[in-house]
Amino acid sequence: MTFKLIINGKTLKGETTTEAVDAATAEKVFKQYANDNGLDGEWTYDDATKTFTITE
C-alpha cells in the first residue's frame, strides 16, 4: 500500500510517499524521516486517504 506524508513545517513544506504493509510501518518510516529532517510537530492520520500530516 502507498501512504503519503504531508509536511507543513516552519521551514520544510511538501509531501512524500512510502510503500508499507500497514499504517504502523508507514508511521515509523515517516517519523524517522521527520526526525532526520529536524521536524517536530503534531501528527494526524486519515485512514480513508492513507495520509499522515505533520504540522509544526
Rank of each mutant, 00 (worst) to 15 (best):
D46W: 03
E42Y: 13
T17M: 07
N8V: 15
T44D: 15
Q32S: 08
I54S: 01
L39S: 03
N35A: 12
V21S: 14
I6C: 04
D46K: 06
W43K: 00
Y33I: 10
K28E: 14
T2A: 07
Q32A: 09
L12G: 13
T17N: 13
T17E: 11
T53D: 03
E15D: 08
K4C: 04
A34P: 01
W43Y: 03
K50A: 15
A20M: 03
A48K: 15
I7Q: 03
D22W: 03
V21A: 08
A24K: 07
A34Q: 04
T11Y: 14
K10S: 07
T18R: 08
W43G: 01
A20K: 03
L12D: 15
A20W: 02
D36R: 07
F30W: 03
K10M: 15
Y45N: 01
L39Q: 04
V21Y: 06
G14K: 11
T25P: 02
D47T: 13
A48P: 06
E19W: 11
T49G: 06
E27A: 12
A20F: 04
N37Y: 12
F3G: 00
L5D: 01
N37W: 08
K4V: 13
V21L: 10
T11I: 11
K13Q: 13
G9N: 06
N8S: 10
F30C: 01
E19R: 13
T55C: 04
W43S: 01
F3N: 00
A34W: 03
T18A: 06
A20G: 05
A23I: 07
V29T: 09
K4N: 05
T49A: 08
T2K: 15
K31Y: 07
D47R: 10
V21M: 15
T16G: 08
T11Q: 14
Y45A: 01
E27F: 11
T16H: 12
N35K: 12
G41D: 02
V29W: 12
E19A: 10
N8T: 07
K10L: 08
T25L: 12
L12I: 14
E27L: 12
T44N: 07
T11W: 10
N35G: 05
G41V: 03
N8K: 11
G41C: 03
I6Q: 06
V21T: 09
E19I: 12
L12H: 08
Y33D: 02
N37A: 14
